[in-house]
Write a protein that binds this DNA or RNA. Structure first.
Lengths: 214, 214, 214, 214
DNA sequence: CATGAATGAGCGTTCATTCAT
DNA sequence: AATGAATGAACGCTCATTCAT
């Protein structure tokens, strides 16, 4: 029936995948892990079936986001590596990674828990490791890092802002900074005197406020 | 024990309530916030209706657990307050609170996010605040605390071990300690020289491993 | 074991039964058939178990209310029988019975559907039949009744106000009268000229208002 | 039928929607408002999810049936308007509407209690009103109607057969006619002499029979 | 390939009914 | 006899996943 029909390119498939990832990123960031795949599909402007064609299940989609996340982190690491000192590089990278987490409700838990599922993500992770390994090594040489700290600690420490960020994102979107700096200073103190903590401590939730839905 | 007053009625009800709370505590700790009340009922060996008789809804059950959690934290704070120095007290309390979190998947997010729903919980929280306020003040007087740190920061800092603990609970149940000490040292460094980090850094998840279910 | 124990009297049992029936009558009238037996028990100030001791199940309780209803209807019929003409008697009784229905959300459907379950109720029903049989016969002799109308039609006709009453009870508690008189006039027209319908017609429900829950 | 426009997609969806509506109509008619959507789904031979895909909730399904009901009533009104006299038209319409109610357990309460939820239903209701307004006006001009009767009374009067119909549907499916005619004669008496009531009066329920479930 | 209709297990919750106290 | 704690089937509804179109 389709004699002259040109073979449909991968082009649109690739485009659809990007649409889905973008939509998922947006929705997961805004509303956390409990967005439905119908929501994602609708936001992306495709059918649910298309989402399932690209990602075997919801977890795979989540894992797909990790790739996107790694890309941003690699950029961040490249900027960090370009800074004059290891100290500054490490501090900038950690704060940047935490800022990313603080603006993304789902990935603060999901990214670090999931393994890279694709060769691409794995490659990105290794590139990230190489970049930050260099930065950490330089900082160590400068005597700027807590003893025993290794490049493998970088993602772990970054993830620790998650619980604070999740709690405060909606009401005090900058509250995470106080604790982020506390952590960064613990890993790699600033050059001079250790300054007082910035910002305000997190007020306890008022009596009677509801448990946030998962 | 209380004179001759008979309270014939509640014997089994009290026992069942305890069974439910125990079951809930266990399951929430193991599997996080998304256990169903059917699961809780089954684990407790009662019908769902019984769970609903004791707790109007799921949030109320969670709130009940929060109360129990606060009781433990108050005990911990009392022990901390009894230590000779504020420094030791603060360090012991923070590490103890983090240890509790590290063994409880749900409460690491729920406790700090939820308000105390009951007068009892509120009272416990205030008592906790008073105890730790004293400890922090003593530690400040000793010059042992990071400048700007306040008692309100205590729960926030405690919660920060959550993301690490959730990631490692099943495979490396002690991995949280490395990062817990990093945090505690940041808030309130030990008396002498700052030692190297303890333990091993968190290895990145191997390629291809699945995203853990929420 | 209970040698000297006095046999517990029926006295309180009888009182409890009355409490239950009163509570049930009140709640069913106000809120229809979907009150729970816990509500009834609470309103009556007894335990649920006590309700079940007196009435094997919810339907039996409903049937129990029929007895109470019949008592009121018998009184009404006695007053009707005392009126000078059969016409007046029949009209007064029908209007009175309809008024009862109009103030009782549940019984408008339940009473006429349920059979008398107790000897007492059966006796009351027969007494009612006898009284109204006399009234109808007198009215027939006066030529005041639609031909073919029999005493057996009395409860049927009375029940017909139910659908109107249920629809209007909350908003226009007197709206039923218009249609009650229409029916009564159809069965037994007033002495003189047939007057116009009284009151206002029932406005149709406004667009968009919800279906009332059953 | 509509030119050559192909609408390839909905073939099965349309069929399923029809299956659902048919099943719902049947079950609601037989058993009243408290059929579950699982029942409807099973009767229709589809999954529950499919029902919820077509109708956001139970009320919406009910509203869908109301639309179908209005369609029938409009047809009935059109036939009534075509009759030579207003008297005949009004009588035929009222009897027809009552007959519909007598064969449908749920709609006797639902249709008249619910507002039209859709623009379609609203339009149908208005069309119905216009048609019957004309019929009533003609009948009034003929002097055939009870004074004060208005088109707004038409649905109210129609609904009054509900309580009788619900009681008798299963055992004496024609018992409603006696009371329907009583009502219709009250609104709009037949041309000649008022005949005796047709049929038999409703026998009281035998002692001991159970209350029918709601 | 893309679509979105269909599926059904599972959720939180209710309530008529039973039974240990 | 009275109580109310316990039960569990059933409800309305959701959503990850499959599959006919």
């Amino acid at each position: 029936m389709s004699t002259t029909a040109v073979r449909p390119l991968r082009a649109d498939a690739v485009r659809n995948r990007a649409l889905i990832v973008d939509a998922a990123r947006k929705l997961f960031a805004e509303r956390g892990l409990d967005v439905t795949l119908h929501d994602v599909a609708e936001e992306a402007g495709v059918g649910v079936g298309t989402v399932y064609r690209r990602f075997p299940d919801k977890d795979a989609l989540l894992a797909g986001l990790v790739t996107a996340k790694y890309e941003t982190l690699v950029e961040l690491a490249e900027q960090a590596a370009a800074l004059p000192t290891g100290r500054e590089g490490l501090r900038q990278y950690l704060l940047g990674a935490m800022q990313l987490r603080s603006s993304d409700r789902s990935l603060s838990t999901a990214v670090m828990r999931a393994a890279p599922q694709t060769a691409e993500a794995l490659e990105l992770r290794e590139r990230l490791w190489a970049l930050m390994g260099g930065v950490v090594a330089r900082a160590q040489a400068e005597g700027a890092v807590r003893q025993g700290f290794t490049p493998d600690d970088v993602p772990a420490v970054s993830s620790m802002i998650g619980s604070i960020a999740d709690r405060t994102r909606d009401e005090h979107p900058d509250a995470w900074r106080r604790y982020a700096l506390l952590l960064v200073d613990a890993v790699c103190p600033p050059a001079g005197e250790l300054p007082p903590l910035v910002g305000e401590p997190l007020a306890p939730p008022p009596a009677g406020c509801a448990v946030a839905r998962p």
